[in-house]
């Protein structure tokens, strides 16, 4: 067992999740099973494989391009024109649980 219930509760707390008492053992089991699988992957020798942060680093890019040019297609110029406009405010606020028509509103934040 790599993770115990206290680890699950810690992670759930960080994620703002409330787990009921009967959900906790299931989460412990699932997380351990995932970590066991990672252990299997760790058996592979990857010492000569470069670390990869994003799969899109290797796949879906024009392989003939090098350097900055390789990923340039996924960036943009610093201009408004021709790009997506900002939303009208009423639309931006439409899904808010609470608002006063100008601001999103949340229960009073005391800290910070």
């Amino acid at each position: 067992m790599k993770v115990a219930e206290k680890d699950v509760l810690y992670v759930a707390d960080l994620a703002n999740l409330e787990l009921s008492p009967d959900e906790r053992p299931r989460m412990v089991r699932d997380l351990n099973s995932i970590l066991d699988y990672i252990d299997r992957l760790n058996q592979l020798d990857t010492s000569d494989v470069a670390a990869m942060a994003q799969t899109s680093d290797r796949f879906g890019v024009d392989q003939s391009k090098r350097g900055s040019e390789r990923f340039a297609y996924a960036s943009r110029d610093d201009i408004h024109n021709g790009l997506r406009e900002s939303l009208p405010r009423d639309e931006a606020l439409a899904n808010a649980p609470e608002s006063d028509g100008n601001f999103f509103q949340v229960p009073k934040v005391i800290e910070r």
């Binding site: 601001f103 509103q105 949340v106 009073k108 934040v109």
Partner: peptide, 16 residues
Amino acid sequence: SLHEGFPDAAEKTAID
């Protein structure tokens, strides 16, 4: 986050 200057600032924080 704006914590003051609103009628309901005692209960609410406003977000811009």
